[in-house]
Design a protein around this nucleic acid. Sequence first.
DNA 1: ATGCATGCAAATCCTTTGCAATTGC
DNA 2: GCAATTGCAAAGGATTTGCATGCAT
Lengths: 141, 141
Amino acid sequence: MKREVLELLKENKVKITNEREVIIEILQQTTKPLSPADIFLRVRPQLPKVNLTTIYRNLEMLEGLGLIKRVGFNKEYFSYELLANRPHHHHAICKNCGKIEDLENISEKFVDQVSRQTSFKIEDHNLEFFGYCKNCRRENL
Amino acid sequence: MKREVLELLKENKVKITNEREVIIEILQQTTKPLSPADIFLRVRPQLPKVNLTTIYRNLEMLEGLGLIKRVGFNKEYFSYELLANRPHHHHAICKNCGKIEDLENISEKFVDQVSRQTSFKIEDHNLEFFGYCKNCRRENL
DNA sequence: ATGCATGCAAATCCTTTGCAATTGC
DNA sequence: GCAATTGCAAAGGATTTGCATGCAT
């Protein structure tokens, strides 16, 4: 899968640097969205000289190419997740511990409803659920 | 409606200050979400000495009481909207001009789907649609 | 009168930008 | 070799914090 991403970069005349390879690997290894700082911390062990700025710039580039998606969570800052080869899905976020669960099989019927009801030309949507995960639910009792 | 909000503040031993009254009025007058800075700009004509810090602190307080909701939009910063007496609804956001449209009548059936499919105890959700409004759609052609 | 709220200034955190040095192609 | 990319330092913008003063109850 990394191959395909790198291919796409080449097609777009984007140079394949070590930094970019590692960032892409990391995005592929995690299913949950990562913030720029998260990614930075995971790149550093492999490339100790890397700079946060580089992370930001590459995330922007990858988003521009449509390879990753920016997702905004409640109190937190923006995070990114890889889109390539992943079916459209949504997230359930635990209000207590921040745990994120993927929800893969939600019907998209309601998207049609919206398109009919608004004058907007809808291209994309965000759907996030908030609640408590198994563990934190227990803690609350 | 403002009365009810003020009642709720009293119940929670929160003092009714001019700043708070004006902030609440402003939140009530707009249907679209407002950022702290937006609110600040609208409070100032009425209370020229008000400080942005006060806006931040009061929004945090109102959110804590569950009276307003923090909504995060794409590239933008967080905004708030009053919950009281407003039916649950969603937003359509124009990717070009940032215009926000309320979507009031979306079926909530899919929420049930989710509750069944996850181990999370779902309490809330965010649903935002992105696309182009009538005007910006024309510009794109 | 008392304690909560405010204003102000400074600090903090995330993100962006400018520029010189470096690297991929 | 040339253009794109990086690292570094500094700037920018939103948000938070500390503290003295003011105000609602």
